[in-house]
Design a protein around this nucleic acid. Structure first.
Lengths: 156, 156
DNA sequence: ACCAGCCATCACACCGGCGTAGTTCGATCG
DNA sequence: CGATCGAACTACGCCGGTGTGATGGCTGGT
């Protein structure tokens, strides 16, 4: 029994609460690709990292908020670079076609006051919490192992 | 030369910056109907009130922010009742599937801090400003007249 | 009363974002 | 080493939200 690092496609989908078709479509259209192992034809399998799960969950929350997938795509051009350490404290703020990460409440308030267009604000802390909760709820085979390995930073 | 109250379909579309097809589609699907005069078959004409323009502009800004039209529809179930006097000062806040109008900054900050999901915030002052600017930019025939009549509350 | 212009309507097409069903592999287990 | 299984792939369809003409009825101006 080989040790399974990361999460399979269907596991990932279940954890973050999306359909497999969505996960598959997003992977094919380059929105979120599994960073541990990409698919190379039928028979192969995708392996998603914990961080991939965070990204997927962000997308789901943006979709739930009523954003178009197209918008999400442009957001992720920026996101992928800056979704770093401070995932627990920062707020993701979408201002028209610009996207920023904001850590201090004061800056956020400032933005809101100056706002001309629509601001979309997503607290990233809730994203991590919900992903973790989703992992615990799983049938518990692969996931607990994988979670430990990921959490201790041993996924490379 | 009869006095034309309100705005024709194509004028309204131009003022708020949308295509006629959008305006038409939204009218047919009950999102925003012209409140002065609805269409009754080809040959008839729609007449939009100033307030209709505000609603249309809100929709455009929400679309520009990347929201799905479907989301906008649910927002407007609430909006239509509460888009009242304080159009200049309030913020429209969409929290998941709930929509609220918030006037005080403090309340807004509170919401942002407690936020679990995505918040969409639209300052309504900018909506009025941009609609007014759009009206001035028009070929100036009907619009100036109509603006006066509407602004002084003489549209019923 | 006619003509021109405006605009609502109709018919058609298109594209993104999926859902559904069936097929085909590679991995794994016995 | 063969059977089974899970998942990636393919093909097809659907629906919402438009864009693009073409058509045809009002209406205002003369």
């Amino acid at each position: 029994m080989a040790i399974e690092a990361g999460y399979s496609g269907s596991s990932a989908a279940e954890i973050v609460g999306i359909t497999y078709r969505q996960l598959d479509y997003w992977a094919r259209t380059d929105l979120v690709r599994p960073s541990l192992e990409d698919a190379r034809g039928s028979g192969t399998r995708r392996r998603y990292s914990y961080r991939d799960l965070l990204e997927l969950k962000v997308i789901k929350k943006l979709l739930d908020a009523g954003l178009k997938l197209e918008t999400v795509r442009s957001v992720f051009a920026y996101m992928k670079e800056n979704l770093g350490e401070d995932v627990t404290t920062a707020n993701l703020v979408i201002d028209g076609n610009k996207t920023v990460l904001i850590r201090k409440d004061a800056e956020l308030i400032d933005l809101v006051k100056r706002g001309q267009g629509v601001l979309n604000i997503l607290p990233l802390a809730s994203v991590k919490d919900e992903v973790d909760a989703g992992i615990v709820d799983l049938p518990a085979n692969v996931s607990s192992l994988a979670l430990k390995r990921e959490a201790t930073g041993t996924h490379g």
